[in-house]
Each structure stands twice: as C-alpha cells, then as structure tokens.
Design a protein around this nucleic acid. Structure first.
Lengths: 130, 130
DNA sequence: TTAAAGTAGATGCAAACGCATAGAACTCGA
DNA sequence: TCGAGTTCTATGCGTTTGCATCTACTTTAA
C-alpha cells in the first residue's frame, strides 16, 4: 500500500492529465481495454469508486462527449457504456505519456521481478470473493 | 492497480472499521508505526491524500480525541502529531481484525511470492523522486 | 399470472476532497 | 539585519464522494 501511494502520487504529479482526473482517465482506460460496451457494474469492479460516484462520473463524461450511455436492449434497467471516438482519442493522447511514466517507474525492477509482480497481482485480483 | 482496487474493495466491505473510514485508519496506523511524533508532511507521504485534505482530517481526529497536535518547538511553523492513548486503543481494536483480513487475502500467495512482493514493493516505494 | 423478492442504476444530501492561495516561520545572501 | 525566497500548515470555495434511498425492470415461485 505504501508502494501504491508513492506511485500514485508520482503519476498524479506528472503533467499529462489534461483536463481529466486520474480517476476519469481510469474509466476511459478501462473502457478502451475491454472493448465492447461495458455494464456499469462491470466498470465499477475495476474502478475504486462507489456505485453512485461512478454513475455521476459517467454522467459528466457523457456530458463532455467522451462516453456514450445507451440502455441495454437485453436488460432494460441496465446500461451499455462505450467510448465515443472523441473519448478514444482523448484516452490515447493521455495514455501515451502516462504509459511512459509507468514504464519509467517500473524500470527499477528486474525483468524477473516484473514477471513475478504480474503473477502476484493476477492472483490477488482473482481472489474476488471472501 | 487492478489488484489494489480489488483488495481495497474487499477490505472496505469488511465490517471492521467502526466509525472510522479506511483513510482515517490509515492515518492512525501510520502514526502507530512510526512512533515518535510525525510531521504533517511526513504523514502526507504515507497517505494518499492532498495536503489540505490531510490537514482537515487531522483536525477531525483531534476533535475526536484520537490524535494530538502540538507545534514543533524546533520549527514553529511545523506540527508534531501523535496518537492519544484513546487513539492508540482505537487503532489496535480495528487493526486486529483488519490484520486478519489482510492475512486472509495474502493467503493465496506462496511464501516465496510473499517474499518477492515485499522486495518489489520496497523497491517501488523507495523510488520517490523522478 | 401475479405478487414478492432481487438487481441495475440514479438521485438527495451532508461530508470530504482538491486546487489555489494565504499566513506564519525559517533561511540565506547582501 | 533585513528583505527576498522557501517551507509548513491552514483556509475559502466549488466540485466530487459516499451513504441511504428511490425508481424501474427482471426473476422467482405460488
């Protein structure tokens, strides 16, 4: 957790975020990865935010033309979220320099350690239920 | 980051926090570790919060009698923060069950992986400057 | 078929956050 | 020793967050 705090502060201090917050970028990034529309609840699993907070954040991103929200035809109380072309563009523009920051931060690790970290985090993230 | 989000949501869902938030506990925990009074800025390095937010959070913890704030005699613009006995007690009461959650979460890792994780996070956290 | 229970997402509201900035204390060179 | 620059923490203010709750839709089972 200490490591996470340190890294996040570094990333946050990097001047690459344009007029997005890191959390907003996180949403755009997640949407850009799992292509195909995502459900609110799916997205919520990836982002460290409460469901109402995420709901309103998506509101704002929709208002700003970065995200599209359309009701799921299969389950009409659900929602399908996807990036607009504009949103995809924004994500890429910010993602590029951010990826460099991440690479730089991870440079202190040896290749074996990187590999180990990948395995470990996958295990931890996979352990979703108690 | 995915792993962090998953773990944090698990921990947050655990019903062990009493009337503290996780962030507040984080402050109490940090103070309990580095014994001897901490400076605001030191504390801020450990906690993922902006300086003003931390300042106000300490306000609240002082009001609630968990933390003590006295001006540093050596540098009179600075502040020395320490737990009150009450604060120490609260930290321990919450820390115990929380530690169990953490242990449980880390149980999916092998002892070697735990060791590797410790090394890796130490390296990442040590890399504070760009 | 239909009422009860369950699930997905939205909204009211008070509390907490971040940004910008202020104020007070220290430092250092002239 | 005095003023410019820096550092440490606090405060004003608009925005965002979380909790509780609500609405709307789906599922279950009688």
């Amino acid at each position: 957790m200490r490591a996470y705090a340190v890294l996040m502060k570094q990333f946050n201090a990097e001047d690459v975020w344009g007029d997005l917050t890191m959390r907003e970028y996180d949403v755009l990034y997640t949407l850009s990865k799992c292509d195909g529309p995502l459900r609110m609840s799916e997205l919520n699993r990836h982002v460290l935010l409460s469901q109402p907070a995420l709901s309103r954040m998506v509101d704002r991103l929709v208002d700003r033309g970065l995200v599209e929200r359309c009701t799921d035809p299969g389950d009409r109380r659900g929602v399908r979220l996807s990036l607009t072309p504009e949103g995809r563009k924004t994500q890429r523009e910010i993602g590029r320099p951010h990826a460099r920051s991440v690479t730089r931060a991870l440079n202190v690790l040896t290749p074996e350690e990187l590999e180990q970290l990948a395995v470990i985090t996958a295990k931890l993230a996979g352990n979703e239920e108690k």
